[in-house]
Nucleic acid binder design. Sequence first.
DNA 1: GCCAATCCCGAGTGATTTCGTCGGGATTAC
DNA 2: GTAATCCCGACGAAATCACTCGGGATTGGC
Lengths: 159, 159
Amino acid sequence: MVQLGRHFGRGPASLAEIAAEEDLPRAYLEQLVMSLRDAGLVVSTRGAHGGYELARPPADIQMGTILRALEGPIAPMICASDDPEHATTCDRTANCTVNLLWVRIRNAVTGALDSMTLADLVPPRLINVEPATSTATAATPPTATTADPPTLQGALTPS
Amino acid sequence: MVQLGRHFGRGPASLAEIAAEEDLPRAYLEQLVMSLRDAGLVVSTRGAHGGYELARPPADIQMGTILRALEGPIAPMICASDDPEHATTCDRTANCTVNLLWVRIRNAVTGALDSMTLADLVPPRLINVEPATSTATAATPPTATTADPPTLQGALTPS
DNA sequence: GCCAATCCCGAGTGATTTCGTCGGGATTAC
DNA sequence: GTAATCCCGACGAAATCACTCGGGATTGGC
């Protein structure tokens, strides 16, 4: 998750920590992270003070890779899967012209997905509301500390 | 459905006909077509010899319109809906940077969807069971181009 | 006028997926 | 040795999807 990206370079983060920050049930998060680990995206450290951290820098992790790890191959329809392994040809395939549409959509989605990396979604330095352990939040370069990067909000509302 | 497009100009087609051609349960098809009718995409004729037909020529019906009629607003996630009406801001919206990703994906999908019309999917004149070898393999002359509409902001990678 | 074909429409069902829980075992720092 | 943490399989609730049922309303043909 993005949370881990934010945490990159600071050692492993425990499930409890992430769950608290993300406001998700710990047990559920566990399942998700296991998938990510099986996909080689995160590495785990067992025992006390253990936790998870990214296997490689955020910029090297495409969002598509994450999604595929969590939800399987990208496929708007069964007949248009990302992964040839699961290309179950629906019985209609022969005369199903709509397939072309699905494939186009899938390409659009995978394109969008693979054109973004985790680094694109890790806020430069988003100061959380947590008042704990305040490390003098503003002690960073002048531009980076803005809480609302223009690029982010630009695409959000106007549709 | 594509079937109706194929039938365009030949008067109304009954549910029974379409169901037979599509190999779908009649009662189910009924539901789908009702949605399309409510959206003004098809018009119905009641009584004996009644049926459904397209409200306008296939080239004037975007696939996106069909999909929206059948499945509601395009939204990969609740926080990134097509329709501002249903823009339910998830409680995390404030610090959820992933939203940017979803919006991008949604734009990619809607772009792909709205760049195709029903006419693009109606086989020019597909001879049904005939093993016409000539059309078999080379059958994507017009569409094979990376027809990325400019609205897709270049997110599409050429496959 | 009657009948059959057809659309109209709301309610119900079963399978699948998604999200989430539970309980206990294994590993490691201190 | 003990507490923190990951590991892992199984279970359960809720939503969604694909589909069914049953009856009513409208219309063309006889």
